[in-house]
C-alpha cells in the first residue's frame, strides 16, 4: 500500500474523528463534505465514543491475501453509544463465542502489514468489553 493513502485516514483510524452536522446534528463517520440527511455543508469534529454493542458479525475463514495469517477472524458491525455504526475486526476472543448484542470496546491495533518491508497500517478494532 502506498503510504499516503493510509496517512490520509489517520484522523479516522487513529483518533475516531467523526463530523457532526451543524444543522441537523447527524454524526458522520467518516466526516463528509455534505450531510446526506439535510444537505448542510458545515460540520464540527467530534470524537466517537469507544464502546458499543455488536449488531451483526461473521467469522472470515477464507481471507483476502493481506489477512490470511490471522484467519479465522471475526468482523462485526457495532453500534457505538452515540448511535454511529462501524465495521471492524473483533479480536481477543474465541471467534465461536461472538454474539449479537455483545458489548465491545475499541482498541488501537495494527490492522494491515504490507508484507515484510512495507508500511504498517494501524487503526481501530473491537475487543470484548470485559471491564
Amino acid at each position: 500500500m502506498y503510504s499516503a493513502r493510509d496517512w490520509r485516514e489517520y484522523p479516522r483510524r487513529y483518533r475516531l474523528e467523526a463530523g457532526k452536522c451543524k444543522k441537523c446534528g447527524k454524526i458522520l463517520f467518516p466526516a463528509r463534505l455534505i450531510c446526506p440527511k439535510c444537505g448542510a455543508r458545515e460540520f464540527e469534529t467530534e470524537m466517537l465514543p469507544d464502546t458499543g454493542k455488536v449488531l451483526t458479525f461473521t467469522v472470515i475463514r477464507t481471507a483476502p491475501s493481506q489477512f490470511t495469517d490471522i484467519a479465522p477472524y471475526a468482523i462485526a458491525i457495532a453500534e457505538l453509544t452515540n448511535g454511529v455504526k462501524l465495521t471492524a475486526q473483533l479480536v481477543d476472543c474465541d471467534v465461536n463465542t461472538v454474539k449479537v448484542g455483545m458489548e465491545v470496546r475499541i482498541e488501537f491495533r495494527r490492522v494491515q502489514t504490507d508484507a515484510y518491508s512495507g508500511i504498517l497500517s494501524y487503526g481501530y478494532k473491537f475487543v470484548p468489553k470485559w471491564y
Partner: peptide, 16 residues
C-alpha cells in the same frame, strides 16, 4: 502479544 499488537499499539492504549 497477538499479531496485531506491537510497541506502538500497546503504547497508545497505555497512554489512553
Amino acid at each position: 502479544p497477538p499479531p496485531d499488537c506491537d510497541t506502538i499499539t500497546l503504547s497508545v492504549e497505555a497512554t489512553k
